[in-house]
Design a binder for these strands. Structure first.
Length: 487
RNA sequence: GGCCCCAUCGUCUAGCGGCCUAGGACGCCGCCCUCUCAAGGCGGAGAUCACGGGUUCGAAUCCCGUUGGGGCCGCCA
């Protein structure tokens, strides 16, 4: 049987890091074994689901390069023969209702007329008596007259699934091995809400079955849902799929990753200049590793090396420092042209309108090894395009050195008289100047650097001057000299 | 509180009974390279394998317990 996996987000916000990791692992598993990766939208929460989130999730998945073979597509169409792939549409078709009715007919489910307030009271009471908080199943055996009474009151019932009350529900998890639950601790969960919508646990089972999903890979916060679902599969006479529960991703404080830990949506990482392949690589290493603990994976290499055996049971702390390192690695692997085009939006955001030409490509590439994020690019290149802002520490520590004034005056003259203002020539002339005047090279290099860039750190000096051009170099040295005179 | 899951350097992890005086990666420190900053190269610190019992000739690896952390306990998914 061909492997089929799915990613089934609920559209209640942007794609979260944890969701992205789940999607990635499903994608990798499908690619590795030549299976099918299905995308299903679980929008059965009528209040919180919205179209905007669907769009955002699509765009994040697409950005990460996690293409799906089947399911809802960004243009509103659907691919595949198991559709619709959006649960609200499936609900409209009465798919869930049909199976719920079947269960009721077979005596495996029943109507429950308890109101939320009554359930709340029940829970409070149980709490006081230190009993289990689960629903007590009181509506399992309602008399005809009781039902009439409720109907007269206008109560809208939910449908509850009759959970077995003895024995154990056991399943083999591909990552956790055998997981077992006592049935008497399970409870009759709601499968159809009063609104007529299915609950997650029900819709999920129906759809995974109808969509012929063979492997359900998801976060291990779903482990406790699994016995419920297994029993629903069985009651319906469905085959139970294989489960693989992935460990959680935690924040630095060891708590489940959430907004208060900083950026948590893929969208934010994109905005900050992380590269999709870098994020993908990093995410893959949260809960997966090869036997040689490989860190960096080339394109397609993850698809080849991914396997369930390499998946981790224990939770992983999300380490942005390591992600940044990895992002730097990926930025360094970019071609100059690619680096430039990817940097453009970030330059524009900072008000730098930069044409695509050889000079500008070179300017951006000049400090390629320094960027950790694309967001770093504008700051590191801005002085090429804007008036220099002299950093105070640079002025104090370098420009105000006793001999700097005289040196700047002389070297400016040298530059002014040069014919070919090229990297090689500038270096030759500058070194020659140092030698004949008995200066240490550093005495010249540093003030020149600060003069043209305003900073003590920057690209390699002579290339920087060449790119700035003779005019601009000379002009900036003048500005620096004037600054010193007025100081 | 009940149930479930988990437990190797600060972090991600290798390890699946002897090769482990525990390997790699990030981060940290030092040195080298060098026009600065990076990048790169080399080296270092960093884990009594949570703790306690077993099993075994032998345990980070298997079993039990304890502790700690996390998850779930919704007409949310």
């Amino acid at each position: 049987m061909k492997l089929r996996v799915r990613f089934a987000p609920s559209p209640t916000g942007h794609l979260h890091i944890g969701g992205a990791r789940t999607a990635l692992f499903n994608y990798l598993l499908a690619r590795k074994y030549g299976g099918t990766f299905v995308l299903r939208i679980e929008d059965t929460d009528e209040l919180r689901s919205d179209e905007k989130s669907v769009k955002s999730i699509f765009s994040s998945l697409k950005w990460l390069g996690l293409d799906w073979d089947e399911g809802a597509m960004p243009d509103g169409t659907e691919i595949g023969s198991c559709g619709p792939y959006i649960q609200s549409k499936r609900e409209e078709m009465g798919i869930y209702r049909k199976y719920a009715d079947q269960l009721i007919r077979e005596g495996k489910a029943y109507h429950c007329y308890c109101t939320p307030q009554e359930l709340e009271k029940m829970k409070k009471k149980a709490q006081l008596e230190k009993k289990s908080l689960k629903y007590d199943g009181r509506c399992r055996r309602l008399t005809k007259s009781q039902i009439e009474e409720f109907k007269k009151e206008g109560r809208k019932p939910v449908v509850r699934f009759k959970m077995p009350q003895e024995g154990k529900t056991v399943f083999e998890d591909l990552i956790h091995k055998t997981v077992s639950f006592e049935n008497r601790l399970l409870y009759d969960c709601v499968i159809i809400k009063a609104s007529g919508y299915p609950t997650y646990n029900f819709a999920c089972v129906i759809d995974d079955c109808l969509m012929k999903i063979t492997h359900v890979m998801r976060g291990d916060d779903h482990i406790s849902n699994t016995p419920l679902q297994v029993n629903i599969y069985r009651a319906l006479g469905f085959d139970v799929p294989r489960f693989a529960h992935l460990s959680m991703i935690l924040g630095p404080d060891g708590k489940r990753l959430s907004k208060r830990h900083g950026s948590t949506s893929v969208e934010e990482y994109r905005r900050r200049g992380f590269l999709p392949l870098a994020l993908r690589n990093y995410l893959a290493l949260l809960g997966f590793s090869t036997s040689d603990s490989q860190q960096l994976f080339k394109e397609k290499e993850l698809e080849e090396k991914f396997c369930l055996e390499g998946c981790q049971k224990n939770p992983a702390v999300f380490d942005e420092i390591k992600l940044r390192w990895m992002n730097g690695e990926y930025i360094r692997m970019l071609s100059r042209e690619k680096l430039f085009s990817m940097s453009l939006p970030f330059l524009e955001k900072k008000g730098l309108k930069v044409q695509k030409n050889e000079r500008n490509i070179e300017i951006v590439a000049l400090q390629q090894e320094k960027y950790k994020l694309l967001e770093d690019v504008p700051y590191l290149v801005e002085f090429f395009y804007r008036d220099v802002e002299y950093a105070s520490d640079a002025v104090e520590k370098v420009l105000k050195k006793p001999r700097a004034r005289a040196i700047l005056e002389s070297i400016q003259k040298v530059y002014r008289e040069m014919k070919d203002f090229t990297e090689k020539e500038i270096e030759a002339k500058t070194r020659e100047f140092a030698r004949s005047n008995n200066y240490k090279t550093a005495e010249i290099f540093h003030p020149v650097r600060v003069s043209v860039s305003g900073r003590t750190q920057g690209p390699t000096l002579f290339k920087m001057l060449e790119l700035l051009g003779r005019e601009e170099t000379v002009r900036r040295i003048s500005i620096a000299r004037r600054l010193l005179e007025s100081a």
